[in-house]
């Protein structure tokens, strides 16, 4: 049974904004599916829909085998432990007045399962000394706060974690520590991750599969090694090329896109990428390219690449 199945997800807002436009993806149990894209692509909206902190306008969300798309908050309550969201900014996702211990403990208290030893065990598992439990969020470093957020998400023994840019606001050296922690947790607990990010390099060390989003649609999806080293879709290629190289010796010819990602309120017709696409043809403005499976496991939405 897959940890997460998203089918034809649509999320629109009054006023014509389409954040997610018919997205389908599957996260297998125990694997990391990394969803990458730049600002405005809808990945955060999708993340919130996946854990039902937002309600989709259309489509289905099946978590751990249960269809949770239209469930009420009351019906969701007993299921919530099974899937949790780790937020990007650990400062804002922790209640400023709650100590670290209480922040993690609250997860257990809500479901009547609180035991102080359980909280200590969770803190230790994420690499924190339980004695830090007495501290308030503003007395902890960014990395420590994010570990608290992860511990809190693990408290109810989920099978799926959705992580929305979990290391983006951390120092570079701390990012590596937290990413390593996430990988260890995944291996140890068999967790499935839907990992939302814009930083491809971070994704590389964690992901089994990668999906690339642009303006609400998935444009490419496949095994991580494949997508990151041999991208098929012109946008993916530009994303990979845009990573500043660590060594001047590796400088190469690269696609540098013109312009900016347009706002989701003004989505271009046809292929949403066509205005910035280096290989766009006139027909791209009219036809919406379907996500086609080129080889098993690899889908690309561009007939000309």
């Amino acid at each position: 049974m897959s940890a997460l199945v998203i089918e034809n997800l649509v999320r629109t807002y009054d006023g014509g904004l389409t954040a997610v436009d018919n997205v389908s993806l599957t996260v297998a149990a125990g694997e990391t599916y990394a969803l990458v894209g730049e600002s405005g692509c809808g990945k955060s909206t999708l993340a919130r829909c996946a854990v039902r902190l937002d309600t989709p306008t259309g489509g289905r969300i099946v978590v751990n085998g249960r269809d949770v798309t239209r469930l009420s908050r009351r019906a969701l309550r007993p299921l919530r432990g099974g899937f949790q969201l780790v937020f990007q900014d650990p400062m804002s996702s922790l209640e400023p007045r709650l100590s670290a211990h209480d922040a993690v403990g609250e997860a257990l208290r809500i479901h009547g399962r609180y035991r102080p030893e359980a909280v200590d065990a969770l803190l230790t598992e994420v690499g924190l000394d339980p004695s830090l439990g007495a501290r308030l969020p503003h007395q902890l470093s960014g990395g420590q706060r994010q570990r608290i957020g992860i511990a809190r998400a693990l408290a109810l023994e989920p099978q799926l974690l959705v992580l929305d840019e979990p290391v983006a606001s951390l120092d570079v050296s701390v990012q590596a520590q937290v990413v390593n922690l996430l990988r260890e947790l995944q291996d140890r607990r068999g967790l499935a991750y839907l990992f939302i990010a814009h930083d491809l390099a971070v994704v590389a060390s964690l992901a089994h599969r990668v999906g690339v989003m642009y303006l609400g649609r998935i444009v490419e999806e496949g095994p991580a090694a494949q997508v990151l080293t041999d991208p098929q879709h012109p946008y993916t290629r530009a994303l990979v090329d845009a990573i500043p190289v660590e060594s001047p010796a590796l400088r190469r010819e690269r696609t540098v896109l013109k312009g900016e990602p347009p706002s989701p309120v003004e989505r271009p017709g046809g292929c949403v990428f066509h205005p910035r696409c280096p290989i766009a043809r006139p027909s791209c403005a009219q036809e919406v390219p379907a996500l086609e499976e080129r080889v098993p496991g690899l889908r690309v939405a561009c007939p000309y690449s």
Binding site: A176, A204, T229
Partner: peptide, 21 residues
């Protein structure tokens, strides 16, 4: 610093870390 920068081609593996902060 140079070693801890994640590499695209490295695949799923432990990132080299500078211990501490």
């Amino acid at each position: 610093l140079l070693a801890s920068r994640p590499r695209l081609a490295a695949g799923r593996s432990a990132l080299p870390v500078i211990g501490g902060a």
